[in-house]
């Protein structure tokens, strides 16, 4: 049994300790926003935050998460509004098929938390590990800059 906090809610999970967090989220907690793309941490569609850090949940065993805080794509927005990154994504019409975008957004939220004014090189260094088969990279880049500016403006 593992006790953790997911999107602010305390949950107790009964799963083998080597079960990846991805499948705990999707199959046991009903949170399907985090996606399965490759299972080997190559695509980033499974990206979540654990205690504020980006992690690829497809290779992260639940046994390591006792007492941890997990944030998924479903936990970014408040009841009142979407996260600035999500808003930027919509303003730039980033998604095409959309399957990779939860991971792209989670990586971006962590990027902007670590670096409030990323250059294009910074963006490359953080987001090149998130794969998009539809080719939304140029719009993602614009959306990251947009979100950075919006977050700075809000103070």
């Amino acid at each position: 049994m593992t006790k953790l906090v997911v999107n602010g809610k305390h949950v107790t999970v009964s799963a083998d300790s080597d079960t990846p967090l991805l499948w705990v989220l999707r199959d046991k907690l009903g949170l399907t926003g985090t996606k399965f793309g490759c299972g080997i941490a190559q695509c980033g569609a499974c990206t979540v935050h654990v205690d504020g850090q980006s992690k690829r949940s497809c290779v992260l065993p639940i046994g390591e998460l006792d007492g941890k805080q997990v944030t998924t794509i479903e936990g970014l927005a408040t009841p009142k509004q979407l996260h600035a990154v999500q808003q930027a994504w919509l303003a730039e019409n980033v998604p095409q098929c959309g399957y990779c975008q939860a991971g792209q957004i989670m990586t971006t939220v962590a990027l902007l938390a670590a670096n409030a004014s990323p250059t294009d090189e910074d963006i490359d260094s953080a987001l090149s590990a998130n794969l998009c088969r539809c080719g939304t990279y140029p719009r993602i880049r614009r959306a990251v800059h947009r979100a950075a500016a919006a977050i700075k403006e809000r103070g």
């Binding site: 941490a41 992690k55 990323p118 963006i123 260094s125 590990a129």
Partner: peptide, 10 residues
Amino acid sequence: ERNGVACSTC
């Protein structure tokens, strides 16, 4: 790592 992607991300 300075931009939110640590080694331990993967």
